[in-house]
Design a protein around this nucleic acid. Structure first.
Length: 482
RNA sequence: GAGGGUGUAGCUCAGCUAGGCAGAGCAACGGACUUUUAAUCCGUAGGUCGUGGGUUCGAUCCCCACCGCCCUCACCA
């Protein structure tokens, strides 16, 4: 008894193949021509004998001949199996083929009477017999849950899904290329950390047996990347996963991919240019006009991104300044926000997110956040309560922040201590002060600009997907009860 | 965490506000068919109606609980 019950009628066909001495799970099939090339370069390839390999998507049997559509990663082409051409024995083997099977075919590329480009098959090989049938050919797989759980079916049956993930890969490739071309070095820093630093997020906890210590999956790579600045890597970046043990919704998956960039001798304004440059280039690659639809909106990536001041935007949206605490409380109540026990800056920020961020559609940098929200950021020289930090907002989503990095170890230590005061006991266990990071700063970190971009959200914007699960191959779901 | 929606054949969905034998299309199986393309035609088979209780002569349908998923809100740098 198998753990996965195959379908009887498919197993029967598989057995018939084996009876005829055919291995239903074939071997390498070299020398294939991509199907898209057969279609696109048909004029050059017409009448030549070619090989194609792929999955059967449709099978139209007509007695002594059949049309079988084959799909590879580049496209779909029709193939024609004829008794006359193949002979009795081969044709009988062909009778065992079904939608979902993976086969390799060799034959003449030509055109049928009705004008369809077709491979007239001379011989073929069964490469993998599917003992489970594919979804229905017309509607495909629609059920969101099954699509996420069985992404492999989603990918081979829903073309748009495949396209989306190809685009995702290309976006990451472009970002990487852009940074490397500009002298940045790609690095990898620890995923498992003894102190979950770099962001105020709940970490996942794990345990190392041999060392007998608890470790945290990182919530951010920031503190390690800055150590590299100290070490003399002047331009570094990392594209990798972060893990945050928090809620799941349309914009949040517990593991997500971020880009972090650090550039010595620059500041948050330099990071702004870099960010705008990267994002605009990506948009222009997808649409020559640089205008992309997102949900009900059209986002303009060509015009210079807007810049608004945090406190000015707050006052403009709410009609009172952020330091009017009585009105802040009233507003929070009006919005139904729970700000009990929150520091005033956090209460203000909560209101800010609902009244300002959510309403920003076109790419906008929000400039100069409260220092209290930015413990790793250099405060403004003339106005220490404000930090040199911006957040980029597009379509109401936080795409990422950038900072002028704090490199004074005395100020950093003080901010760490202040931050710790506000935490309860449980949080202190994973928010221990990273003393070694302070030591690193004490050896001298060059002034630097730092940037963080949410890659998944960028991909959402560029593929017009409003749910993060659509751009993550295997989003986290509760395990199926099987 | 709160509210709403949803779960029926392998897939896509009806049926549920009239409580009375469980339905369609595609896929599948058998047959016909050597230029079809969502092939066509004839025939056949396919179900724990998410799970567990309750009401009822009788429950896919009404009620309760639970589970998964989706949406909105809350939480969340």
């Amino acid at each position: 008894m198998s753990l996965i019950e195959p379908e009887d009628f498919r197993v029967e066909k598989l057995k018939k193949l084996e009876e005829k001495g055919i291995d239903p799970y074939g071997d390498r099939y070299p020398g294939v021509t991509p199907i898209s090339k057969m279609i696109d370069c048909y004029d050059d390839l017409e009448d030549s004998t070619l090989r194609a390999a792929g999955r059967i998507t449709n099978h139209r049997a007509m007695g002594k001949a059949s049309f079988i559509d084959i799909k590879d990663s580049t496209g779909t082409i029709q193939t024609f199996f004829q008794l006359k051409r193949l002979g009795d024995e081969q044709f009988e083997i062909h009778d065992q083929l079904q939608p979902g099977d993976i086969i390799g075919v060799e034959g003449e590329l030509t055109t049928t009477r009705s004008g369809e480009k077709t491979i007239f098959v001379d011989n073929f090989m069964v490469l993998s017999k599917a003992v489970l049938r594919p979804p229905e050919k017309w509607h495909g797989l629609k059920d969101a849950e099954l699509r996420y759980r069985r992404r492999y079916i989603d990918l081979f049956s829903n073309e748009k899904v495949m396209e989306c993930f190809v685009t995702r890969s290309q976006i990451i490739d472009q970002i990487r290329r852009h940074l490397i071309d500009n002298g940045f070095l790609e690095v990898e820093t620890p995923m498992m950390q003894a102190i979950a630093g770099g962001a105020a997020a709940q970490p996942f906890i794990t345990h190392h047996n041999a060392l007998d210590i608890d470790l945290f999956l990182r919530v951010a790579p920031e503190l390690y990347l800055k150590r590299l600045l100290v070490g003399g890597m002047e331009r570094v970046f990392e594209i990798n996963r972060n893990f945050r043990n928090e809620g799941i919704d349309r914009q949040h998956n517990p593991e997500f991919t971020s880009l972090e960039v650090y550039k010595a001798y620059s500041d948050y304004l330099d990071m702004m240019d870099l960010t705008e440059d990267i994002i605009r280039k990506l948009a222009l690659r997808i649409d020559p006009a640089g205008e992309l639809p997102f949900g009900e909106h059209t986002i303009d990536y060509v015009s210079e991104f807007a810049k608004v001041d945090y406190f000015e935007a707050f006052e403009k949206a709410n009609g009172f300044p952020a330091d009017d605490l009585a009105k802040v409380h009233a507003k929070a109540e009006e919005l139904g926000l729970d700000i009990d026990g929150l520091a005033p800056e956090l209460a203000v920020n909560s209101i800010f997110e609902h009244t300002v961020e959510d309403k920003i559609i076109q790419p906008t940098f929000i400039m100069d956040y409260p220092s209290a929200l930015s413990p790793l950021t250099k405060p403004k020289k003339d106005k220490p309560e404000v930090a040199e930090r911006w957040d980029l907002i597009i379509a109401g989503m936080e795409i990422g922040p950038a900072y002028t990095e704090l490199n004074d170890p005395r100020v950093q230590e003080e901010k760490f201590l202040q931050q710790l005061e506000g935490e309860d006991e449980a949080e202190k266990t994973f928010r221990n002060i990273d003393k070694d990071f302070l030591r690193a700063l004490s050896h001298g970190m060059p002034p630097a600009g730092g940037l963080g971009l949410g890659i998944d959200r960028l991909v959402m914007l560029f593929t017009n997907k409003t749910a993060i699960r659509e751009v993550i191959l295997f989003p986290l779901l509760r395990p199926a009860d099987e």
